[in-house]
Design a protein around this nucleic acid. Structure first.
Lengths: 181, 181
DNA sequence: CGACTATCGTTTGGACCCGAATGATTAACG
DNA sequence: CGTTAATCATTCGGGTCCAAACGATAGTCG
């Protein structure tokens, strides 16, 4: 479906097609195509990497990406408060409740009420969960390594640097409005 | 929770903490930290940008990110076959069935059977859907622009280039195994 | 032509995702 | 001390996400 060669041979096929289509629609001048290119590739790359890691590493352990993230947060930090686990895993407390129920049923985590404030909850890996993560994270990281091997070391650093900058920018946009720049 | 200043001041707080923690666990030498940094930032940046765009642009229209993606695919390409819409939106056919039901109920899309092969389905925006997207995509793109404004133009190009390379790398890993490099 | 295989979108079952409401618990106030 | 407000995790309702099975339809084969 490609037409004349795109000016930038680095573009993915999907991008070439969309770019030409937006030109046909007369929208290419009305849009910030640079921003669109940057962000749509963030989304696509994240989806692709996540799917690949789920398929090759997580599915055999019957774990979703989010379940793995929660286990990872607990593995790195040890027993932690429920609300902090949610924050560090990037999900809401409502979602974490469900994910923990699944992991508890699998006997990978356990919940414990705070001694003094019974509203609060601690969460920790079980021995079984710790044992799983000790092996699984190395495998997961090998999967990350295989994916990142397509970039040279300088490129990996640069990618990480640009993405951090982007995250800071998102935070800046988030706080735009009264009282902020 | 930060300890002595991290060697790289560009790191996000969460990364500094995790890096120190992995050192404490004696894992820093066993892991590919560059790959981990690159990929974890892809996931975090994608989540942050997606949440920001959902909050600021999509929620007021009662649209999920995926619903918007489907509308966008139909807006750019016009009436399209169901299976291609799923592929271009990055979701399975099962998921698309549900998303289309939601959008159909909102009278934003319509389904039409193929004239000759009644297994196949065409999907198109309704006039209402087209009208919504004509306004919404510009707003969405402005949101993208606000986020990407944290990077200068050269950085945006470089980010997109590195992410494309990463996607190609994922594809290469996906096909690794018998019959492939 | 009938039998068999393949393809299509839907359905199923289970998991996740969110915002908002809820009940239990704690903190603050007069 | 009782009342009110705030905080916590869970529940609710609705949407999404997947793989696999399913029923309808089309293609292939002998």
């Amino acid at each position: 479906m490609s037409r004349a060669p795109a000016p930038d041979p680095e573009l993915l096929p999907a991008e070439i097609e969309v770019g030409e289509r937006l030109r046909e629609l007369g929208l290419d001048t009305a849009l910030d195509l640079d921003a669109m290119a940057a962000l749509s590739n963030v989304f696509r790359a994240a989806n692709a990497a996540r799917s690949q890691l789920e398929r090759s590493v997580l599915t055999v352990h019957d774990l979703s990406f989010t379940a793995f993230t929660v286990l990872w947060v607990l593995w790195v930090w040890g027993e932690h408060e429920f609300r902090d686990v949610a924050a560090n895993s990037g999900i809401t407390k409502g979602t974490l409740t469900g994910v923990l129920s699944t992991l508890e049923r699998r006997q990978l985590v356990e919940r414990r009420r705070h001694d003094e404030d019974r509203r609060r909850l601690y969460v920790a890996l079980t021995r079984r969960g710790t044992s799983l993560m000790s092996k699984l994270f190395v495998t997961f990281n090998r999967g990350e390594s295989a994916i990142a091997a397509g970039l040279d070391p300088g490129e990996r650093h640069e990618l990480a640097r640009l993405l951090r900058k982007l995250q800071r920018s998102v935070e800046g946009v988030d706080q735009s409005g009264p009282g902020n720049g």
